[in-house]
Deep mutational scan, measured.
Amino acid sequence: DLSALRVEEVQNVINAMQKILECPICLELIKEPVSTKCDHIFCKFCMLKLLNQKKGPSQCPLCKNDITKRSLQESTRFSQLVEELLKIICAFQLDTGLEYANSYNFAKKENNSPEHLKDEVSIIQSMGYRNRAKRLLQSEPENPSLQETSLSVQLSNLGTVRTLRTKQRIQPQRTSVYIELGSDSSEDTVNKATYCSVGDQELLQITPQGTRDEISLDSAKKAACEFSETDVTNTEHHQPSNNDLNTTEKRAAERHPEKYQGSSVSNLHVEPCGTNTHASSLQHENSSLLLTKDRMNVEKAEF
Results as ranks from 00 to 15, higher is better:
Q154P: 12
L245F: 04
S58T: 05
D231E: 03
S156Q: 13
K167S: 08
L146M: 07
E142P: 03
A4I: 10
L51Q: 09
D66P: 00
N242F: 03
E214L: 13
Q18S: 12
D294S: 10
S139L: 07
I30A: 05
E9V: 07
G56E: 12
V34D: 14
Q93D: 09
F78W: 08
F303L: 11
R135T: 10
V7I: 07
K55I: 04
K108W: 14
A133N: 11
E32R: 13
S288I: 01
L51S: 09
S113A: 15
S216F: 05
D66Q: 06
L21K: 15
D1T: 04
H40F: 12
L203C: 15
L86K: 13
N131V: 14
N52E: 13
S152F: 07
K64T: 13
D95A: 15
E32S: 09
A223H: 09
N267Y: 00
D213T: 01
P61V: 14
K64E: 03
F303C: 14
I20A: 05
H40D: 07
Q283A: 03
F78T: 10
A4W: 01
E8V: 06
C38S: 14
I30W: 04
C225I: 04
S264K: 13
D200I: 00
M127G: 14
A279N: 14
K134I: 02
K134G: 14
D244R: 01
P257Q: 10
R295Y: 06
L48I: 05
T149A: 09
R251F: 14
L27H: 03
A4L: 11
D95C: 15
A16E: 05
H256R: 06
R132D: 01
E229S: 09
K221L: 00
L62K: 08
S113R: 11
A133H: 05
V161D: 12
K192V: 00
M17N: 15
Q138D: 07
C90H: 03
T248H: 03
Q53V: 06
I30K: 09
F42H: 13
S219F: 00
M296C: 02
L164P: 11
S219L: 01
C63F: 14
N234R: 01
E226K: 12
L291Q: 08
F45Y: 06
K44T: 08
D218I: 01
F78E: 02
S281Q: 10
T68L: 12
G199L: 01
S71T: 12
D39W: 03
S126E: 06
G128R: 15
Q171T: 00
N102T: 05
L62I: 07
M47Y: 11
Y195D: 12
R165L: 13
S79V: 08
Q53M: 06
A220M: 05
Q201G: 14
N286G: 10
L98P: 06
R6S: 07
A279K: 04
